[in-house]
Computed example of a mutant assay.
Amino acid sequence: MRLHVDQRHERVLELVRERGSLRVAELAAELGVSAVTLRRDVETLAGQGRVRRLHGAVVWPGGAVVEPPVRQEPAEGPVIGMIVPTTASIFADIVRGAREAVRAQGGRLVLGVSGYVDTEDAVQAGHLLSGGAQGLLVAPSWSGGVPVDGQERWLVDRGVPTVLVERSAPPGNPAAALDRVRTDRAHGAAVAVGHFAALGHRRITAVLQEGPHAAQITAGYESAVRSLGLEAAPGAPSVREHGDYEASVDFLADAVRRRGVTAALVHGDEDAIVLVPRLQALGIRVPDDLALIAYDDEVAPLADVPLTAVAPPKRSVGELAAKLLLGRLAERGTGARPTPRQHVELLPELRIRASCGGGPPTR
Rank of each mutant, 00 (worst) to 15 (best):
H343W: 06
L178S: 06
G220H: 08
G47S: 13
D304G: 10
R167N: 01
H201E: 06
L164M: 11
P61I: 10
I204K: 10
P174L: 02
H267N: 14
D288H: 14
T339A: 15
I94W: 01
I204R: 11
L128K: 01
I90A: 14
R257G: 02
E210S: 15
G56S: 05
V239Q: 01
H213Y: 14
Q72I: 09
G220C: 12
E10V: 12
E67Y: 00
A336Q: 07
L137I: 05
V138D: 01
R341H: 07
G132F: 00
Y295E: 09
A303K: 02
V65F: 03
W60V: 01
R8N: 04
T334A: 13
G97A: 13
L320C: 09
T162W: 06
R39P: 00
P301Q: 00
R341E: 05
R315V: 09
T205E: 10
R278I: 10
R50C: 08
P237D: 08
R153E: 12
W154C: 02
L292N: 08
P171M: 04
V163A: 01
P61Q: 07
P361E: 15
E100T: 05
D304K: 12
A336K: 02
H55N: 06
E345H: 07
F251S: 05
Q48W: 09
V102N: 00
A75F: 00
V225F: 05
Q7W: 00
A57C: 03
D121T: 03
Q151Y: 04
R40F: 01
T44Y: 12
W142K: 04
E349I: 14
P147H: 04
V310C: 10
G260R: 09
Y295G: 12
G81R: 00
P174Y: 08
A253E: 13
N173V: 11
L347M: 12
R108L: 01
E270W: 06
V165Y: 04
D250N: 03
A64T: 11
S355W: 07
R259M: 08
L290S: 09
A133L: 05
I273F: 01
S248V: 09
S114L: 03
E231I: 11
V117G: 06
A192M: 14
R332I: 01
I217C: 07
L137R: 01
T334S: 15
L292P: 02
L324A: 12
R180C: 14
Q209H: 13
H343T: 13
L329D: 05
V42H: 04
I293H: 09
D41W: 00
L45I: 12
V165Q: 07
G172W: 10
P85G: 07
L45Y: 08
R285N: 11
L208V: 14
P68Q: 10
A122Q: 11
F91Y: 15
T119N: 09
G229E: 03
V113Q: 07
A177L: 10
L178T: 08
G20H: 02
W142Q: 01
R240M: 14
